Amino acid sequence: MAEPLLEVAGLYKTYGSVPALRDVSFTLAEGGSLGIVGESGSGKTTTARIVLGLERADTGRVTVRGRDRSPRRRGRAERLRGAREVQIVFQDPLLSLDPRISPGAVLRETLRLHFPGTDHTRRIAQLLDQVGLGEREATGLPRQLSGGQRQRVAIARALAVEPSILILDEAVAALDVCVQAQILNLLADLREQTGTAYLFITHDLGVVSQAADHLIVMRHGQIVERGRTEQVLTEPRHPYTRLLLDSVPRPGWRPESIARARRDLPGPAG
Rank of each mutant, 00 (worst) to 15 (best):
Leu52Pro: 00
Leu52Lys: 09
Gly53Lys: 04
Leu54Met: 13
Ala57Lys: 02
Ala57Cys: 07
Asp58Ser: 04
Thr59Ala: 12
Thr59Met: 10
Gly60Asn: 04
Gly60Arg: 02
Arg61Ser: 08
Val62Tyr: 06
Gly66Glu: 01
Gly66Leu: 03
Arg67Asn: 07
Asp68Tyr: 14
Asp68Leu: 13
Asp68Lys: 14
Asp68Gln: 11
Ser70Ile: 04
Ser70Trp: 03
Pro71Cys: 08
Pro71Lys: 10
Arg74Asn: 09
Gly75Lys: 13
Gly75Glu: 03
Arg76Ala: 09
Ala77Val: 10
Glu78Ser: 15
Arg79Thr: 09
Arg81Pro: 05
Arg81Phe: 14
Ala83Glu: 12
Ala83Leu: 15
Glu85Pro: 02
Glu85Ala: 08
Gln87Trp: 06
Gln87Asn: 05
Gln87Val: 09
Ile88Pro: 00
Ile88Gln: 01
Ile88Glu: 00
Ile88Met: 10
Val89Ala: 00
Val89Glu: 00
Phe90Ala: 02
Phe90Cys: 03
Asp92Ile: 03
Pro93Arg: 07
Pro93Glu: 03
Leu95Cys: 14
Leu95Trp: 15
Arg100Phe: 11
Arg100Gln: 11
Arg100Met: 12
Ser102Asp: 01
Gly104Phe: 02
Ala105Phe: 14
Val106Glu: 05
Val106Tyr: 08
Arg108Trp: 11
Arg108Gln: 09
Arg108Val: 07
Leu111Asn: 01
Leu111Trp: 03
Phe115Ile: 05
Phe115Trp: 08
Gly117Glu: 01
Gly117Trp: 06
Thr118Ser: 15
Asp119Met: 07
His120Thr: 04
Thr121Val: 12
Thr121Phe: 13
Arg122Ser: 14
Arg122Phe: 12
Arg123Cys: 06
Ile124Glu: 01
Ala125Val: 11
